[in-house]
Design a protein around this nucleic acid. Structure first.
Lengths: 339, 339
DNA sequence: CTGTTAGCGCATTCAC
DNA sequence: GTGAATGCGCTAACAG
């Protein structure tokens, strides 16, 4: 009789088989529903499983089946609200599927990303979700020959690779359009990091909106940020130090907008009374800034969820459709009509 | 000759052995440095490894060695800034160790936590970090008979279980003390969820500070929150609806403070001119609220880092010391002397 | 319906 | 130094 104290070493399928007086295969069959088993044996096995607190060793299963029931997630920064929302979507998408996820960070670096992918592959993940990756499409396609990959920020659609690309240009366009419709004529732009495709596209949207409205595109109103708060603060400061005139600011992401907001506060400039401010992302915190931030909503949670569902389908060899959730302008309280 | 196109199936140790014209054991020895191998064979093997893009199958290694080089992390909410900071610490602590982590969410539910732990155990994690767990110490101790566990929010110190407990009571005490020293006499408290030990302790600190200062402890000034923004907003609203008089608010965590801040903004009440506000946690965003939030700093990142280091030591059977990083009052701009 | 056999990929005896 | 043999725990033929 096996001890029932939770302290005994993990029992194996073989232990269960012995306890129940059947062969290992029978236990396996019951566990996996692979074949019909007589009720009496089934009962005996179930009892033995309960008695021995048996849980199949996932490592052994993985080795045997060639599937680990694990997927790899690559984010760029594990403690960024941007990625966390998507991770929540992934988490929900995995719920009840038996899959677990190992999350690694690429730190905005293509080489590190490739490293992480190799690491995940060595761990025999069944598929990979790449969020905001920096590596080239070719590299993604390469890796996808090993395991299916779903990636954000690119347009891909093969049998084992899928890319979701949101329309950053259009989102930015609509943000600036909103400001223009409120009567703003001189609109500053706090950019994202250099060589960042998303950032570039948002700049393009900003540019197009101004051009279409026949507004002057003043390079001095475009100031460099880095997608985090401190950069937004600095950028805003720079605008004032160089004595620019403007009535509105479009920040390339919400975190930059937070930093800009603080700069404004320090200078005693009111938002939106004196200056209007628009962000991009709609992070969870943006509903609770003072005042709540007008921004372009990225469906981050949905992206995580959709990516997960798509990856699971790829893993099972099922066809996937490339549905891209839309960007949305959320008008809150940091923008107002210019007087 | 094996194809070098990245598309061939993953090569095995046996492939490498054949390529190099040696036995599998020799390859294994070179990989693990288990024994001396002649230089010519070593070179041949290294070349073969490079040529075949060999990487050891971690599932097979895990099965064989009984260690998966994976640790499990249980958070309560995967997209909360509170946990993310600690996760970053864990991530850094794991860097270069060869360990990966699988992160699961307990959703503030003791039963779900236990479920997750069983899941992690079945996946043969080598150890577990439990962040803000709800399960009893006994249950933790139980599970720790299987694999080492490091947990926050409790005091434990056995050969295979370690608990870090921060002094919430003292932190809250100091927050309120700070307000009292600024001349505040009527200080409201936005509590955390019911049956939450951290929340209870913060309430206790609040109470003690008032009592020690001979200030009236008015139950009407204590209003229920739930550790998230919306709760803070509601709580603050409730305070006004019931026409309470107060010059300062202590929120049981930063997120509650954010919500309270928004309520104040909506009512046109200035912070800190009209009302002072103190939070608890010092989330990354708290430096960028308007105005920046005075709060009690929890060393979230450090907790993640320390927990990881401790867990790794427990896994290796090394002794660990129970060093608890201190709480710290961070005075920013939401508090001021009462006029 | 059920038991016996073999093997997933690797590390580790044990011989030589 | 090095190779052959064994087994980690499980599943999937293969027989019956």
């Amino acid at each position: 009789m096996i001890q029932d104290d939770n302290t005994s070493p993990p029992s194996t399928l073989l232990d269960v088989a012995r306890e129940a007086g059947v062969s290992p295969s029978t236990v396996s069959r019951i566990l996996n529903g692979t074949a019909k088993v007589s009720d009496d044996k089934r009962l005996a096995v179930m009892a033995a499983i309960a008695r021995t607190h048996f849980a199949p060793n996932q490592m052994a299963q993985a080795l045997k089946k060639g599937r680990s029931n694990t997927i790899g997630i690559i984010v760029q920064d594990i403690s960024s609200p941007f990625f966390d929302e998507s991770l929540r979507g992934v988490d929900d998408g995995l719920k009840g599927t038996g899959y677990a996820s190992v999350i690694v960070s690429g730190h905005w670096n293509a080489d590190e990303e490739a490293d992480r992918i190799r690491l995940l592959l060595a761990r025999k993940v069944d598929g990979i979700i790449l969020l905001s990756g920096r590596m080239s499409d070719e590299t993604v396609l390469q890796f996808s020959t090993h395991k299916p990959i779903v990636s954000t920020g690119r347009s891909l659609h093969t049998r084992s690779a899928l890319g979701f690309k949101l329309d950053n240009e259009d989102g930015a366009y609509r943000a600036v359009r909103h400001l223009i419709e409120l009567g703003h004529r001189r609109i500053a732009f706090i950019s994202g990091p250099e060589n960042n495709i998303d950032a570039d596209e948002r700049l393009a949207g900003y540019t197009r909106a101004l051009r279409e409205a026949d507004l002057e595109l003043d390079p001095k109103l475009i100031v460099g940020g880095n997608f985090i708060e401190s950069g937004g603060l600095l950028a805003m400061n720079h605008l004032f130090e160089t004595h620019q005139q403007f009535s509105a600011v479009f920040a390339a992401n919400d975190q930059s907008a937070y930093g800009a907001r603080l700069c404004l506060y320090r200078k005693g400039i009111r938002v939106p009374d004196d200056i209007s401010l628009v962000g991009f992302d709609d992070l969870p915190g943006s509903s609770y800034t003072t005042p709540p931030l007008t921004t372009i909503r990225q469906p981050l949670y949905e992206i995580g969820l959709i990516s997960t569902n798509a990856l699971l389908r790829l893993i099972n060899g099922e066809p996937v459709e490339n549905q891209v959730p839309p960007l949305e302008l959320i008008v809150r309280e940091t923008t107002r009509r210019v007087r």
